[in-house]
């Protein structure tokens, strides 16, 4: 029996989206939520805290989503960490076939109320067949 998802790092440069997502996961989903507004800050959080899953915005100033993903994979401590993309560019990142190293792509806008259960499902799938 796999333990449920408990800690999530949410990375987005839009403070309003970050606020909505963290509120939904924390208050409705009961998860522990860490937030970062860009890639480099996110890598710092990963070093300090034990994170189960990363929710990563694709387009960000400075270090963007794909660059951040690359850095996560390059670090042996986080190389197998499940990463989920969030993007408004649904044409570029199809939901059906997520890019390599990405567990899933969540298209913006999404429903924050059901977000926790969606992430729990992805967490379970990840452990059933680790990529």
């Amino acid at each position: 029996m796999i333990r449920p998802l408990t800690t999530v790092l949410c990375v987005d440069d839009d403070p309003d989206i970050l606020a909505v997502v963290s509120l939904a996961l924390r208050s409705l989903g009961g998860l522990e939520v860490h937030v970062a507004s860009e890639g480099r800050t996110a890598l710092g959080v990963l070093e300090r805290a034990a994170i189960d899953m990363v929710l990563l915005d694709v387009m960000m100033p400075g270090m963007d989503g794909p660059e951040t993903l690359q850095a996560i994979r390059a670090n042996p401590a986080t190389s197998t960490l499940p990463v989920v993309f969030m993007t408004a560019r649904v044409q570029l990142y199809g939901q059906a076939n997520p890019p390599a190293g990405v567990l899933a792509v969540i298209a913006k806008p999404f429903d924050p109320v059901s977000l926790t259960s969606r992430l729990q499902r992805l967490w379970a799938e990840f452990h059933a067949s680790p990529a």
Partner: peptide, 26 residues
């Protein structure tokens, strides 16, 4: 069109998200 839809999705995400949370009684 693609850029425009992207530009609209970002504020729509926070708008619809915040409304959904309010509706959920948060």
């Amino acid at each position: 069109i693609s850029t425009l839809s992207h530009e609209m999705r970002t504020p729509l995400t926070s708008l619809a998200g915040a409304l959904a949370l309010l509706q959920a009684g948060l």
